[in-house]
Nucleic acid binder design. Structure first.
Lengths: 236, 236
DNA sequence: TATGTTAGTGTAAAAGTAACACTAATTAAT
DNA sequence: ATTAATTAGTGTTACTTTTACACTAACATA
């Protein structure tokens, strides 16, 4: 009788605690790339190996470690799973539906980043084999977990904050105004007026003309511009 | 001897589990109220009982349960700890610094809600004794955990989304334009031009004139307005 | 030198924002 | 009944921002 009371307590604790064990926290990275040639957005994807989603595309994600800030976790997970380093990840929000992950309770925090696929060396040769996919193509296909919702919300987020996000990280240091316009059009998924666009970005002091011009083009060469780091301190 | 082995096991389990227990997910609710009399925002606070923050003000928060959607958790925690029900909670974002909670690793997801303190019955008589505090007063004092940062980010969020948030839930169903203006001024923490404000809200179709007028005032009575539910579908 | 291709530019109308001061309606006090 | 106090309610003008729109310029190639 004496000993039973503490034991029961302990069992209760273990049960309670065990249930916490099944609850985990992850991060998922929505990595947008810009394909200059095809003037379209790309998304960095993995292939899920978790039933029932095996074989479907998924975002770059993994569990957060106990002694790791969630922002740092996103950076680490992205590096470990893809080889990408030195990109700025920005939080979108947490996604916490009970059944969002088939293995157990996993709440995830979504992050987005904007990068230049051409300047990034992916670890494509080793698992989990990250690959770039056309965003448009992806949108018509299913994805693992709730990753389609996360993708959709992230895209809405960057569209809504278009003037505050670091689009410069999707372009080389020097670019033409037409290239910049095409990038904005790819993000916003709508055409922009050429003259109005040029007036706007110059007025906003986002960019600055350089003395360089386009080379090896079969038409009038465009002036090259570069971003004014000063012009945009805050990323959101 | 016989009894010792299980005990050791149990201790071990507890220790292991204990470390998992130290990784937990919580929700914190930033409940903004509007005090019409003093034309200022209030914040619903509890008193922390966790060292080293014992006695400091904190947000309404608690752990998320294993089988509970995080949005639902916010609703439940708010109800259990304050008695408030039927308010719309909107996620701000996750806060996940390693040392944000002294007891262990607790990542939290912040939510905000906008309410009318006058129309809400708080469980002030029983722990944790929720109380309304002047936001302005609070801002000059320390708060428990990282709750000041959470509060600050939440306030910025509603300021930045002023046209998309359900401000109607901070006012009675019928109100004067001056009352509405004072509310906006309290949220934005800056004065607004009376004529421009009136033109704007009417143009946006947020509100609609009713046939009722103010009663028992010692000056020219104002017309009463009401929100157009139709006019504002999306919250954010 | 003609053709194809993209770069680069200005203006006018419309909509939105910002600044600003007086009259109207009521109650309370005399 | 008059006056004072208080808040409600209203319009215009200047300025800024947004939108719509079409032609010339510069280069490479055939």
């Amino acid at each position: 009788m004496h000993s039973k009371a503490p034991e029961e307590n302990i069992n209760k604790s273990i049960k309670k605690i065990d249930s916490y064990f099944k609850s985990a926290l992850s991060v998922d990275c929505v990595i947008f790339g810009y394909d200059k040639e095809n003037e379209e957005l790309l998304l960095l994807t993995l292939k899920s190996d978790i039933p029932p989603y095996k074989g479907l595309h998924c975002l770059v994600g993994d569990l957060v470690q106990i002694n790791e800030n969630i922002d740092d976790a996103a950076t680490r997970v992205l590096r470990e799973r893809t080889g990408i380093d030195n990109v700025f990840l920005h939080q979108v929000r947490a996604f916490g539906d009970v059944d969002r992950h088939p293995v157990g309770r996993v709440v995830t925090v979504a992050y987005y980043a904007l990068v230049q696929p051409a300047s990034i060396k992916l670890n494509t040769d080793q698992p989990p084999h990250p690959t770039w996919k056309s965003l448009e193509n992806l949108q018509s296909k299913p994805m693992a977990f709730d990753h389609k919702e996360i993708l959709h919300e992230s895209l809405l987020h960057i569209q809504n904050h278009i003037l505050d996000i670091p689009v410069e990280s999707m372009l080389p240091s020097h670019f033409t105004l037409s290239e910049l316009q095409s990038l904005y059009e790819a993000i916003l998924q709508k055409p922009l007026d050429k003259r109005n666009f040029r007036k706007k970005v110059l007025k906003l002091n986002l960019i600055r003309e350089t003395s360089r011009v386009q080379k090896n083009v079969t038409h009038r060469p465009a002036k090259l511009y570069t971003f004014n780091r000063e012009g945009k301190e805050s990323v959101l």
